[in-house]
Amino acid sequence: MIGISALLLLVHLGLDQVGSAAFATPWHPEVEDGTLVLLRGEVTEVRALSGDHLLMEVNGTRVFLPARVAARAEMREGTFVEIVGTAQTYQGQKEVVVESASDLTLI
């Protein structure tokens, strides 16, 4: 039992080091909703929304940051980023929804 617990702890720590980007599919507009995706590029627009949410555009793709993520992220136009998020369709447009501030990396 101790051996299994130790193994699970090592796997968990290893996955934390690798990050979710290792499991994400490269972004493309035809990806299915619910898919974990990786998007890299330049932030070309940042808009504040009601409820303290942010909406960004990265390489022509909408990226939604819920308030809990936006509060911990300082995104500016002209910044190059790597984003891991979930693809979804909102009001007929594909977008990437970021679930954690750790899924935003400046590059």
Rank of each mutant, 00 (worst) to 15 (best):
E42R: 14
E42C: 07
V43S: 10
V43L: 11
V43G: 09
V43C: 14
V43K: 04
V43D: 09
T44V: 13
T44I: 11
T44C: 10
T44Y: 09
V46I: 12
V46E: 12
V46F: 12
R47C: 04
R47P: 07
R47A: 09
A48Y: 11
A48W: 12
A48K: 13
L49Y: 07
L49K: 05
L49M: 14
S50N: 10
S50V: 02
S50M: 03
S50G: 12
G51N: 14
D52C: 07
D52K: 14
H53E: 05
H53L: 02
H53N: 13
L54F: 13
L54M: 12
L54E: 03
L54H: 12
L55N: 01
M56K: 00
M56E: 02
M56P: 00
E57L: 02
E57F: 01
E57C: 01
E57N: 08
E57H: 04
V58N: 08
V58E: 07
V58P: 09
V58S: 08
V58Q: 07
N59W: 05
N59Q: 15
G60T: 10
G60F: 14
G60R: 08
G60V: 09
G60D: 13
G60S: 13
T61S: 04
T61P: 02
R62M: 10
R62H: 13
V63H: 01
F64R: 00
F64D: 00
F64E: 00
F64V: 00
F64I: 00
L65D: 01
L65I: 01
L65A: 05
L65P: 00
P66L: 00
P66S: 02
A67Q: 13
A67M: 05
A67T: 05
A67V: 04
R68F: 09
R68E: 07
R68W: 09
V69L: 00
A70T: 02
A70S: 12
A70Q: 03
A71N: 04
A71G: 05
A71C: 03
A71W: 03
R72A: 15
R72E: 15
R72T: 06
R72W: 09
R72C: 08
A73S: 11
E74N: 15
M75W: 05
R76C: 06
R76V: 10
R76G: 08
E77H: 09
E77S: 14
E77Q: 15
G78H: 10
T79Q: 15
T79I: 11
T79L: 15
F80N: 04
F80P: 00
F80C: 02
F80R: 06
F80T: 06
V81R: 03
V81C: 07
V81D: 05
V81K: 03
E82R: 13
E82I: 05
E82T: 12
E82A: 11
E82V: 06
I83H: 02
I83M: 03
I83N: 02
V84D: 02
V84H: 02
V84T: 13
G85L: 08
G85T: 07
G85W: 06
G85E: 06
T86F: 11
T86W: 12
T86Y: 10
T86V: 15
A87K: 07
A87Q: 06
A87Y: 04
Q88T: 13
Q88K: 14
T89K: 07
Y90S: 11
Y90T: 07
